[in-house]
Design a protein around this nucleic acid. Structure first.
Lengths: 223, 223
DNA sequence: AGTATAGCTGAGTCAGACTCAACTCGAAGA
DNA sequence: TCTTCGAGTTGAGTCTGACTCAGCTATACT
């Protein structure tokens, strides 16, 4: 006798996709990408592997969609959150603090994203890159405004600042994921804001005046 | 008739290990970890898969050894290189510039390391972490000395600075790997040094000198 | 009730990591 | 030179997990 076929309750495309994505996120968070199996994701919502593949063409595109959803969430969060914050320094601080919190509260998923977004095929990687670009664009905006308002040196590289902020926080992530080190989010946010802002803020009058005389001297040397 | 057995020239343990490691590095660089196969590594030195596994218990421990070798190389490089550099700011600049160059000249391998060192089992990950800690410890040293000599604010968090420097450069790595963006290493090194040092310096001589160069740049634009 | 079809199944295929029992090269001793 | 013997190597596997596909069936619509 052939094995009895499974009793199924069919779902609309939309509902299934949502369920798969939810289960996938959980499994990826729990096991990481490599050790997560499509079979386990399927089992979680009581379908067979094949069903998952009828909605997502590969495990990679599945993880990509999970990333996409997450990026949408956090982009919305930061873009609405910053609206109420005034002043270049405060805005910078808000972005840093907010991102640190997101990373701390979603460290497992962030770990997967950081690891796996680099391993995607060019086409898929491009998509993640776009999402990331949109999310991190907020920093570029803050820098641009800061320069406009004279709070930040005009020749500041927004790319450098963006890489510095997200790169630094990314490094803290591995402490968070490892779990060994116990990081004080608020303190790190304050320190990083301080470091970055001091590094790019427009200096005081005194310094400038003194530099001018030095400059003249140097220019003379050059001529 | 059974297939004729392969004609072999046997090698000492030492020689084989070295050859495998070399071949492995090439294949990992070329294909990345996932797409590299142990079979290809074996083929490269004209042995079968099984031989590789008789020296390395798994693909992961193999990649770990490749990483180890690389870390040893660059640690030695930076530790000897910094000896001739005087002054806190210059030492910081040297570390940043040196690391950027290493990353730029070994982007494929660095990509593999950054991606895969996060995916290792706890035990193996710990080993990479140690290597990384030793390599990056140079920054902590520079900061400590800088504080001692009054060049750097006494309450500066060495961890923050370390994460900032290596995190920022790590972010640039993905531009390098992607190949799309054409990064000016020297300029990034100068800007990053500037940003970090301004952010932590006790603010006397060094800062001014840096401001002067900025003014020169600006004047040049005006002329 | 009949029927079209979207949703789902489950039995595969396939690639690639990893195992192992057996083979053989070559150095060391007789 | 002959024999021994153990380390180095082979190649034919096993096993796991991503991915495919032909066909079954629940459900909505007539």
């Amino acid at each position: 006798m052939a094995a009895a076929r499974k009793k199924v309750t069919r779902q609309s495309r939309e509902v299934r996709i949502k369920a798969i994505l939810e289960a996938a996120r959980e499994v990826f968070e729990e096991r990481g990408y490599d050790k997560a199996t499509v079979a386990e994701i399927a089992e979680k919502i009581d379908v067979v592997e094949g069903t998952v593949f009828s909605y997502f063409s590969s495990k990679r595109t599945l993880v990509l969609k999970v990333m996409e959803q997450f990026y949408e969430q956090i982009t919305e969060l930061i873009e609405s959150g910053i609206k109420g914050v005034e002043g270049t320094r405060n805005r910078l601080h808000y972005v840093i603090w907010n991102h640190l919190n997101i990373v701390a509260n979603n460290s497992a998923l962030c770990g997967v994203i950081l690891r796996e977004s680099r391993g995607l095929d060019i086409e898929l990687a491009q998509q993640v890159h776009e999402l990331n670009k949109r999310y991190t664009h907020i920093v570029v905006e803050v820098i641009r405004e800061g320069i406009e308002q004279g709070d930040i040196q005009a020749d500041t590289s927004a790319t450098l600042v963006r890489n510095t902020i997200f790169g630094t926080i990314e490094h803290y992530l591995w402490d968070l994921v490892g779990g060994g080190v116990d990081t004080d989010i608020d303190a790190v946010a304050a320190d990083l804001t301080n470091l970055v802002f001091e590094g790019i803020s427009a200096g005081t009058e005194d310094v400038k005046r003194e530099d001018v005389s030095r400059l003249i001297k140097k220019l003379n040397e050059l001529l």
